[in-house]
Design a protein around this nucleic acid. Structure first.
Lengths: 233, 233
DNA sequence: CAGTGGTCTAGACCACGTG
DNA sequence: ACGTGGTCTAGACCACTGT
């Protein structure tokens, strides 16, 4: 009568976590290899492997072939935030989503944008300014630039009835992106658009998207006052 | 002469990703089961399993036992942000990290905090206000509350020479947490502390931490003007 | 070159949740 | 009840990289 349930990768994960927390293994030091651990835990190497793989993904340890696995001295904390599609975010709150194009202009790429996203000088870009509403309330002001070289189809799109994000998702694949969260004091334009007082603290999200080194689009989103992003750890 | 390298879980992942993007399988609909896919790809079920598991983790699909695997209609976009330890963040920028305690006071838990973190009325808490400097420049103002019921050891700690976060990491385990990013206009105190003009837009990070339903600590961090969080997708 | 993690396999049993 | 995903195993080969 042995209560020999097989040891799960979760058990392994937890034990190791505990050991790291209790400094059984010094930060920065090497921990035993997979084979050794699998013997200790009485399970297959694959089980240990999965536990360690996930711990590495969580940023608790660092693994290198031949070098072994070491405890991260500075256990990095990650938080996963949802970057919502605006329509869904608004509808999930129970409001009607409404979109309005304010301006649409083809231009030559400005220098600052060139530097910002790594484009080539002289290329054509499409500049869009739009608003997103939740019911009758202004929700987000969007300042969007689309590279017409890498996304020429945008030329034929008026963006009167579809917002840039939804169009891009449908029409343009992308490989890589960058997101920057920051804040800004509302200037004249934003205060009018978002109906907030001049200087109000606004949450902003900048997003750059590439397709294999080709810059596709740059967007700066200004949220209504009081907007916040939430996540669980 | 067959170039029969074994198909990797990465291959599977990529093909599936492609199919989802190309709407080979309708959003919201069921996709084939693991067995069927493993036959199609000519690999072991474990391989398909890993591919699907990771795709689920990336938010592209949703899996349920017995129900099968379906394509997420609203492919959620996630972004993983690093929640840095302030000392490391500052030192990584090449500055000296300096910490200063401004105020330390034991109190009865205020109502708003009670509601905020789900504590019991009447419990004792420790309220700390501190500053973090990068070299000579103010970097972050911290407003911290520690539950003295769940972390009684905090009573004996002056927090003169160690910042709350580092102490908590060392002394108190935690199971669960919540992070909220938002913005605020600098009030009198913050403008003095962070040396910014009154009303400047500040980036704030609130953090609540629990240990098995026991609220441990609540912190609101106010960053210097111009602070931003960055991540790759 | 040799040791460590990375991955694949084929088969097995289990747990959950739908019908 | 039973089908689907979830996990474990034992063994094998590969790929990277420190020595």
């Amino acid at each position: 009568m042995s209560t020999d349930q097989k040891t799960s990768y979760l058990d392994v994960k937890n034990v190791i976590r505990r050991r790291i927390h209790d400094t059984v293994w010094e930060p920065g030091s090497l921990m035993p290899g997979e084979v050794e651990l699998s013997q200790e835990f009485g399970c297959a190497r694959a089980t240990v492997n999965r536990a360690l793989r996930e711990l590495a993904q969580d940023g608790m340890i660092e693994r290198k072939r031949k070098a072994g696995t070491r405890i991260k001295s500075a256990p990095t904390r990650h938080a996963k935030f949802v970057i919502p599609r605006i329509r869904e975010e608004i509808e999930r709150m129970g409001f009607d989503y409404r979109y309005a194009l304010i301006e649409r202009k083809e231009k030559t790429i400005p220098d600052w944008l060139c530097a910002r996203i790594g484009g080539k000088a002289g290329e054509d870009v499409l500049h869009l300014r739009c608003m997103h509403y939740a019911g009758s309330r202004a929700f987000q002001y969007e300042d969007r630039w689309i590279n017409l070289v890498s996304a020429p189809k945008a030329r034929a799109q008026t963006f009167q009835d579809i917002n840039p994000n939804e169009w891009l998702i449908r029409e343009v694949p992308f490989s890589d992106g960058e997101v920057i969260l920051s804040t800004v004091n509302a200037d004249q334009i934003m205060s009018e658009m978002l109906n907030v007082s001049l200087g109000a603290a606004l949450f902003t999200l900048e997003r750059i998207t590439w397709l294999k080194d080709m810059p596709m689009t740059f967007a700066k989103l200004y949220f209504h006052a009081g907007y916040q992003m939430t996540t669980r750890l």
